[in-house]
Design a protein around this nucleic acid. Structure first.
Length: 475
RNA sequence: GGCCCCUUCGUCUAGCGGUCCAGGAUAUUGGGUUCUCAUCCCAAAGAUCGCGGGUUCGAAUCCCGCAGGGGUCACCA
């Protein structure tokens, strides 16, 4: 059987966002599940739009997600180089083949003249076709004029791995530009040549290219090369709009998710299920599950809105599933500054308490800050508390003093603390909401914390009692 | 405007002629887990399956129209 090869072919015009990365993920999954090759090719044929550093940025993004490539920058092999700007000779050679066969010709018009043709077509509400203006005696192609395909308009029927059987009439096949006047190929030409030379078996790309497929089919024939399987991924759409996700309306750099403490596995599972499912009720997938279960023909045909709340849920799910030691290693850059003086064991204990509360790592400082420093006493915490505001200040004070004297006798093990808190509940006759709420506020100066006994056990006797005293001082 | 793609709860989706007066997840709301937040569990609410015709004993599912949305018609990818 033929070796499966897929590719991701971004142009280095900026960062990668969820929309683009999902297409890469689909291609990567197809390669991995077939023990094939995943190739990264940088399509830098537009010098004007190229953004410095973005090729590196794109590679970093894929690496962070764990979408490793077998051929591409830094991974030589049988079909490099992998920057199109380093393959100009190849395109020229293939272009010349078409010229020699009479299947390509130099475009003699100025851009202004072509634009005039186009304007006329638009004014007449017709689609613009360059082949209506094919010159009778085109000049020889010397590389300074655009080179166009001499198309052979005809109807096409083809199969798309996602969309099924498709067909169009000859009206969409046109003499598109193969080589620009700056000597660079167009995407339309370069990707066909490269996919062929790199032996790509599955071309997986997003919807905006669908309308161009008949042109590509025409070019495959002109070049006399076999066409690969074609698959069209639907758009990932913005959260509210009807348009595809774009940098303009706030799509985030995929690396920002890393910076905020999202897990690559969560992103991968989430992106895969944005437009794909295995037909079961499974909502979350490991990487290996995706590799074995992913099928192009189960990819959704319609676009899917990108809802970050669902990603948030998925990320929390993956965080909770992590063994504590693994999670601990992953959050090492997210601790609050005050934690520096604390040892790993202490940090690990606090992490264990907030693990199920954390949706992404950037929340860690907020969730844990009171474990590392005394927060200023904040009267509004008990004055505005639903339960505690019913008590008058002297009651609050005496209740806290009672609690303190009991806790003073505790060894601050979780078990002992639980026992004492229960005893206090009975002896004071207070509801847990009142008593526990008060002790929580005194010891954390925060409206919310992990379970009280657990929290006190981690804080320890000295810190807990000190904080209670701090609060008593202002009551 | 031509051509092409799409259309099930707010969102992601299951569904491929009967078991669907449409299932799951998320989000929302309520309840439970001795307290808060979270987790977990339970429950509620939420889709006249874009609309109209057909075919059929029976249609979200098949056929035909229509509408709406999107893409494309670049020396951008």
């Amino acid at each position: 059987m033929k070796e499966v090869r897929t590719r991701f072919a971004p142009s280095p015009t900026g960062f990668l966002h969820v929309g683009g990365v999902r297409t890469a993920l689909f291609a990567w999954l197809v390669a991995r599940q077939n023990n094939g090759l995943f190739i990264l090719r940088i399509e830098d044929t537009d010098q004007a739009r190229e953004v410095q550093g973005s090729a590196d940025h794109i590679q970093e993004s894929l690496q962070w997600l764990g979408l490793d490539w077998d051929r591409g920058p830094g991974k030589d092999g049988d079909c490099g180089p992998y920057f199109q700007s380093q393959r100009l000779g190849i395109y020229k050679e293939w272009a010349q083949k078409l010229v020699d066969k009479g299947r390509a010709y130099a475009d003699p018009y100025t851009p202004e003249e072509v634009q005039a043709f186009r304007d006329k077509a638009i004014a007449e509400k017709r689609p613009f076709l360059f082949r209506d203006h094919r010159p009778e005696n085109p000049p020889a192609w010397d590389g300074t004029k655009p080179l166009r395909l001499m198309s052979e308009p005809k109807s096409y029927e083809w199969h798309d791995e996602v969309l099924g059987d498709l067909k169009t009439g000859p009206e969409v096949v046109d003499d598109f530009i193969l080589m620009k006047s700056d000597g660079y190929p167009t995407y339309n030409f370069a990707h066909i040549v490269d996919d062929h030379l790199m032996k790509i078996t599955h071309v997986i790309r997003s919807q905006e290219f669908l309308a161009s497929v008949p042109k590509y089919l025409n070019l495959y024939e002109a070049l006399e090369i076999e066409r690969p399987l074609l698959a069209t991924a639907p758009f990932v759409m913005g959260p509210d709009g009807k348009k595809k996700l774009s940098k303009r309306d706030g799509a985030k750099d995929i690396l920002d998710y890393g910076r905020e403490g999202y897990l690559p596995d969560a992103l991968v599972s989430f992106m895969a299920t944005l437009g794909w499912n295995d037909g079961s009720e499974q909502e979350v997938f490991t990487r290996d599950e995706l590799i074995s279960k992913f099928k192009l023909d189960r990819v959704q045909r319609s676009g899917a809105h990108f809802d970050e709340r669902r990603l948030l849920w998925a990320n929390g799910h993956f965080i909770r599933a992590l063994p504590l030691d693994v999670l601990f290693a992953k959050v090492k850059d997210f601790w609050p500054n005050e934690s520096e003086t604390y040892d790993d064991n202490y940090k690990k204990r606090t992490l264990g308490l907030v693990q199920e509360r954390m949706k992404y790592f950037a929340e860690l400082p907020d969730l844990t800050k009171f474990f590392f420093k005394d927060l200023p006493v904040n009267p509004s915490l008990w004055q505005d508390n639903k339960q505690l505001k019913k008590l008058d200040p002297t009651e609050v004070k005496s209740l806290l003093e009672t609690a303190k004297s009991s806790l003073e006798q505790s060894d601050f093990s979780t078990d002992n603390l639980k026992e004492r808190l229960n005893t206090l509940l009975a002896s004071t006759g207070q509801k847990p909401a009142v008593l526990f709420g008060l002790i929580r506020i005194a010891t954390t100066q925060s409206p919310a914390s992990p379970g009280l006994a657990d929290t006190l056990a981690v804080l320890g006797k000295e810190v807990s009692l000190r904080r209670i005293d701090n609060m008593l001082a202002v009551l």
